[in-house]
Write a protein that binds this DNA or RNA. Structure first.
Length: 152
DNA sequence: GCCAACGTTGGC
DNA sequence: GCCAACGTTGGC
């Protein structure tokens, strides 16, 4: 089992939205590194830190699990979708997405600043300057520390 | 709203 | 295959 951090803008899709929907296809990812993580490394049952980006303050809002391994991202085929990509075809899909399932919203939201303050979390990608990758691997240790901070 | 740090695109 | 120009992310 592996551990991940996945970013979402709460204005677009928050952990509350996921709680309501129970599961969601993590579509719209148009970055090869993030895609490769989903396509090659993510497995059903992997654990996810659900991160709120572009919010005040940014931080980890809760946990989720991967409930379905990567499938072609159908929004890339849809001309009306903002994620439409003519270079991705049903025969040769370019983009993939996993299904993410709600697990738990943190009792205590874990702001990015608190993560930055912890020396045990200084290796996390999310605290590195200029780190924009929307899907990042985390270690079990980091995952556990964040969960503890979140009151889980 | 600013802008640094990236990623992508396309001309050559 | 280089790299300048452009677009995007996301913290501040």
């Amino acid at each position: 089992m592996k551990f991940w951090l996945m970013k979402s803008e709460p204005d677009v899709f928050s952990i509350e939205d996921l709680k309501e929907k129970k599961t969601t296809m993590w579509d719209g990812v148009r970055n090869y590194q993030a895609r490769n993580f989903m396509m090659k490394d993510m497995e059903k049952g992997d654990q996810v830190l659900f991160y709120h980006s572009n919010s005040k303050p940014p931080g980890v809002a809760g946990v989720a699990t991967i409930s379905k391994k990567a499938l072609p991202d159908v929004t890339a085929f849809d001309e009306k979708s903002e994620y439409f990509d003519p270079k991705s075809t049903t025969l040769k899909p370019r983009w993939f997405c996993v299904e993410v399932k709600y697990k738990k919203k943190f009792k205590n939201y874990v702001p990015l600043n608190d993560i930055k303050d912890k020396s045990s979390l200084s290796e996390m990608k999310v605290v590195q300057k200029g780190m924009r990758l929307s899907i990042q691997p985390v270690t079990k240790k980091e995952f556990d520390i964040i969960c503890k901070m979140g009151g889980l």
